[in-house]
Design a protein around this nucleic acid. Structure first.
Length: 423
DNA sequence: TCTGGGGTCCTAGGACCC
DNA sequence: TCTGGGGTCCTAGGACCC
């Protein structure tokens, strides 16, 4: 039998914001999505005053003022950096591990030679806090889904001390399943939990005991795997080798809607450059691309439109010139005037490792590698993103993102280092 | 006035082939 | 006159995750 642990950072983005701003300790803190749109992270205190996950800022203004909630724009450079510290710390303690998301990591606890896993995890939890300043909770189970479920209970339970081990206490599993609402099971989202609740299955326990044939028919093999995992059968192995990405996307909502074609083009060019950069940094090339633009679905009064178009590259590429050029041609092809555009994006598809594709007959002619992209990447790595770019985007940006409450880049920008005056 | 961004996997259905 | 069945590949859309 395998033993999985899931280490999950508590209120991760809110905890990051607090790290360098001790005055926020024990205060309600929320972090907003891009454009300062809606709440994507809340400290415990913010949850306690009734701020919902995903709530748009304009709907919680009153709560914010009443309770003095600290409101932060999201600062992904900071969160990414702190995440790396936490993951490095965890990886050095459990060599076999899988970084599952920016704030979660699965550990393989077998073969660690540890007699008491609960004690070991408690001390890991403590050290993580001491070394990184980030509080975590740990759930242990025989499958990833059970480890997730244990983690959720560890977060909620006051007496658990942040760690719950279902793997070595099989007698707790039944109660744990009964205590878990179906919608809180990993792999059961909004649609499925509604469907299951309508049929009287309201807890993980109900679902785990449903009939395989029925689950397969209603939820496919994906749902069936979740049910099996709840019963203790492993369907999701630990993936300690990160898989190369198959697609990369760069998309944004605009700060305000735009109708002007050249502005939409500007935005698409910037996203295309950024997407190309991402692909290059993973040493990949793209075989195809797609761009899309769409209006604001929340504005019931405006005519709605969603346009997209795609193209294949003659040879897989990561060259920003090829990618922006193709993006321009696609936009030209799909453009329709008369709409208020709110969001645009580009997807690079069919990614493969650079150099893995069989060379084409025309390679030498079609893709001269003149080193320009490499040079640009090096300069941007040294002097900061966007220091050099293709001369494509104009200066008037009506569409730029709103970030009115951005915290300093404490760990990634020299100018934002915290200074401490002594004496 | 103001509602995120970046991914994965699976399935159904159509085109096409023999 | 008879009007099949099995396979692959691709795409769009829907579910999920953080």
């Amino acid at each position: 039998m395998a033993t999985f642990a899931l280490v999950d950072c508590n209120n991760f983005y809110a905890s990051c914001e607090r790290l360098f701003r001790p005055n926020l300790k024990n205060q309600p803190v929320v972090v907003l999505s891009n454009n300062d749109g809606c709440v994507i992270a809340r400290s415990q205190e913010a949850k306690a005053v009734g701020i919902a996950m995903g709530a748009p800022l304009f709907k919680i203004r009153t709560l914010v003022e009443e309770h003095g909630v600290a409101v932060c724009s999201s600062n992904y450079a900071l969160y990414g950096d702190i995440s790396e510290r936490v993951m490095t710390m965890l990886g050095s303690n459990a060599p076999s591990h899988e970084v599952y998301s920016i704030d979660e990591c699965f550990l393989d606890l077998d073969n660690l030679g540890v007699p008491d896993l609960t004690a070991w995890c408690s001390s890991l939890r403590q050290r993580t806090y001491q070394w990184t300043g980030i509080p975590v909770s740990i759930g242990i189970g025989g499958t990833k889904t059970l480890a997730k479920l244990a983690n959720r209970l560890a977060k909620k339970s006051a007496k658990a001390g942040g760690v719950i081990d279902l793997a070595h206490h099989p007698e707790w599993i039944d109660t744990a399943l009964r205590k878990t609402p179906i919608g809180d099971v990993w792999g059961v989202g909004r649609r499925w939990s509604q469907m299951l609740e309508e049929r009287g299955m309201v807890t993980a326990h109900d679902f785990a005991h449903a009939q395989d044939g029925w689950i397969r028919q209603k939820m496919g093999v994906v749902g069936l795997r979740t049910a099996h995992e709840l019963r203790g059968y492993i369907c999701h192995a630990l993936e300690d080798q990160p898989q190369p990405k198959q697609t990369t996307c760069c998309s944004r909502s605009f700060g305000a809607t735009i109708t002007d074609k050249s502005q939409v083009h500007d935005a698409v060019m910037q996203f295309a450059e950024r997407a190309a950069e991402k692909v290059r940094s993973a040493d990949q090339v793209a075989g195809a691309m797609q761009i899309f633009i769409r209006t604001d679905p929340f504005n019931a009064n405006a005519p709605q439109k969603s346009l997209s178009g795609s193209a294949n590259f003659p040879q897989p590429t990561s060259d920003a010139r090829a990618i922006t050029g193709t993006a321009t041609r696609i936009l030209e092809r799909i453009w329709r005037a008369g709409y208020a555009w709110k969001k645009a994006g580009i997807l690079l598809l069919d990614l493969s490792a650079k150099g893995s594709a069989p060379p084409s007959l025309f390679d030498a002619i079609a893709s001269p590698d003149d080193g320009l992209m490499t040079a640009m990447d090096q300069i941007n790595a040294k002097y900061g993103r966007g220091s050099v770019k293709l001369g494509l985007a104009g200066k008037d940006r009506d569409w730029s993102m709103r970030r009115e409450n951005l915290s300093p880049s404490f760990t990634t920008k020299w100018a934002d280092l915290v200074s401490v005056r002594v004496g």
